[in-house]
């Protein structure tokens, strides 16, 4: 069984004129020691899905469906029970590392306070463990860093420290929401390497959320692509990137620069823009922008079905059309 299983997740947020469905029937599973990716553009519902897993959605949000973690349904948990899961079993890293670092506390204090509070360590043990954690995330001079404040560090180093904070309780899953988006590419590569090493050495599972398919391709084992609140395609990353089958996945890949390809590969833009969550089109939500759309796309919501070891929500299946 998977470590984390999300079944038919729906998230409704209050809107000016009635609730707005931002996540509409999403299924995915994170396996032990795997990096599972949720890809999609802004507003596709990927962050909302992750926040739902952690019970961090705004108070007035409504969540439906099941989120099974080690046999427990997180949706049904009370806030107090959720607190024993959040941070301990499932931790989170945000795009802006300052979200999880207090600007007025030294790194040493931030780490050891968490350690003493959550793991009931003695002062000396907490100190020792803090140094170990900083070594783990490859902060140069861990002892010296304990006395520094977050603003003394560069963006990349801060993200490493935020990862160290996330690792305090030795969680089995880390949810990383655009962890490298604010970083330079040369620094991003280091953070991706770190996440990959933690997965291999510590068996950490990662739920990686990013709009960047390049990042996804370099570390995710499996990936689901979201569009306007729904998953349109899921499968093994290599398969998906090399042979996208949903027109949206294909469009997204064609719109990206491909450094590995020759110079004669123009960017092919997807026409139009994503729908507003308040006013999604009927049928397949991508049909107004899809070059393959047929009549049924406009009225019938395509279901995710198994096709050749992946799941696809498109009755047209452009790959089949092309071949």
């Amino acid at each position: 069984m998977s470590l984390l299983e999300v079944e038919n997740l729906r998230v409704h947020l209050p809107g000016a004129s009635g609730p707005v469905t931002v996540v509409d029937g999403v299924d995915f599973a994170v396996e032990e020691g795997q990096v599972f990716g949720l890809a999609g553009e802004s507003g596709s519902g990927k962050t909302m899905s992750a926040l739902a897993v952690l019970g961090l959605l705004p108070r007035r949000a409504q969540v439906e469906g099941r989120i099974i973690y080690r046999g427990r349904d997180l949706v049904a948990l009370r806030e107090r029970e959720m607190r024993s899961v959040r941070g301990r079993e499932i931790a989170m890293i945000f795009q802006d590392p300052m979200t999880s670092l207090h600007p007025m506390l030294t790194v040493g204090r931030a780490l050891s306070e968490h350690l003493r509070q959550h793991l009931k360590l003695s002062r000396a043990d907490a100190q020792r463990r803090a140094v170990e954690l900083l070594e783990e995330v490859r902060i140069p001079d861990p002892e010296g860093s304990l006395r520094s404040y977050p603003h003394h560090f560069s963006g990349g180093m801060r993200q490493r420290i935020a990862i160290a904070v996330a690792l305090i309780c030795n969680p089995s899953i880390v949810i990383a929401d655009e962890p490298t988006t604010a970083l330079d590419v040369t620094v991003q590569a280091g953070i991706l390497g770190l996440l990959d090493r933690l997965r291999q050495e510590n068996g950490l599972s990662v739920l990686l959320i990013t709009h960047d398919l390049g990042v996804m391709s370099s570390i995710a084992d499996r990936v689901s692509v979201m569009y306007a609140g729904r998953i349109v395609e899921s499968g093994a990353t290599a398969e998906m990137m090399q042979r996208p089958r949903h027109p949206y996945t294909e469009g997204l890949l064609s719109a990206l620069p491909h450094p590995e390809a020759g110079d004669e590969r123009p960017l092919v833009a997807i026409p139009g823009s994503p729908p507003a969550p308040t006013d999604p089109p009927p049928g397949c939500r991508f049909h107004p922008r899809c070059t393959y759309a047929v009549d049924s796309c406009r009225t019938q919501v395509p279901q995710l079905v198994e096709v050749d070891a992946r799941r696809l929500a498109c009755p047209v299946d452009p790959l089949a059309v092309k071949v």
Binding site: A16, S42, G43, T181, H211, A276
Partner: peptide, 9 residues
């Protein structure tokens, strides 16, 4: 602002 559609990333 109630008129802002969408939002920043």
């Amino acid at each position: 602002s109630w008129t802002t559609r969408g939002g920043r990333r």
